[in-house]
């Protein structure tokens, strides 16, 4: 459907939020999905890391005939090997997730790639509308389902938002049979990351409502008052108009109607 453009999707090892198990990362899966939409079977999918990782088969199961792995240890920086892989190749679009589900999850990788390769970066893409000549038109995902259209010159690096087309189902058979092109690369250990202390996430304290009352009586009242609404107000005998007004007031108060 598109004029011949070269698309690369970068994939990483995700982490299931409930079980913590390795999985196909959601946004990376969507990056592959968008890549397949743009380039079909000609899509190049690249992973920097362990070539034996079983999760890669889940990406391959989306119907990829092959997958390129830049083999390196998990403590290495993905950036330099990706830069040297992408540099000087006739690539038009590189798709990544917004933030990795494992590791630092800083979301810097696409920005650093764009900076080092000198390409444009488009954040949080929901869809790619089309390519005309050396220009591509994209839809950006904004909060609450809003969209913004943007035009940009190729080549670009785009991070794919959760709002993009969901990744297709991964099939066991094709995943099993996909070819892995494992490239040996010169990788660099991420030194500064090795100095970090990493612990399991502590639950963040919920912010308390601090009551600034002048008198003890007011503070007591604030501390013992029931939170509004939790009582559950029931309107039974009012007219329909009054009932609707009460609902509408609540909607206004919550600022969902604007």
């Amino acid at each position: 459907m598109q004029p011949n453009i070269n698309v690369v999707s970068l994939v990483s090892v995700g982490r299931h939020p409930q079980s913590g198990r390795a999985r196909r990362a959601e946004q990376d899966g969507q990056a592959v999905e968008l890549g397949l939409k743009l380039a079909g079977k000609a899509l190049t999918v690249v992973h920097a890391g362990n070539a034996q990782e079983p999760v890669l088969r889940q990406y391959a199961g989306m119907g990829l005939p092959s997958l390129t792995v830049l083999a390196q240890e998990s403590n290495c920086d993905a950036l330099p090997v990706l830069v040297s892989f992408l540099k000087d190749k006739p690539i038009d679009v590189v798709l990544t997730g917004v933030r990795a589900e494992s590791g630092e999850s800083s979301g810097m990788l696409p920005y650093l790639l764009a900076e080092q390769l000198g390409w444009s970066l488009v954040p949080r893409v929901a869809d790619i509308i089309g390519v005309q000549g050396d220009e591509v038109e994209l839809l950006l995902a904004l909060p609450r389902g809003q969209r913004r259209a943007v035009k940009v010159k190729l080549p670009i690096i785009a991070s794919v938002d959760n709002a993009a087309q969901e990744a297709r189902q991964t099939a066991f058979g094709p995943g099993l049979r996909a070819q892995f092109n494992v490239l040996t690369v010169e990788s660099v250990v991420d030194e500064s990351a090795s100095r970090w202390q990493i612990n399991a996430a502590k639950p963040r304290p919920k912010r308390l409502k601090v009551v600034k009352a002048k008198t003890a009586a007011d503070r007591m009242k604030a501390a013992t008052a029931k939170p509004m609404g939790s009582g559950g107000k029931i309107m039974k005998d009012e007219t329909a108009a009054e009932k609707a007004q009460a609902i509408f007031d609540l909607l206004l108060e919550e600022k969902v109607v604007r």
Partner: peptide, 12 residues
């Protein structure tokens, strides 16, 4: 900071 999809705390 939070890392690894909010499952880790990274101190630096």
């Amino acid at each position: 900071s939070r890392g690894a999809s909010s499952s880790q705390d990274i101190l630096r």
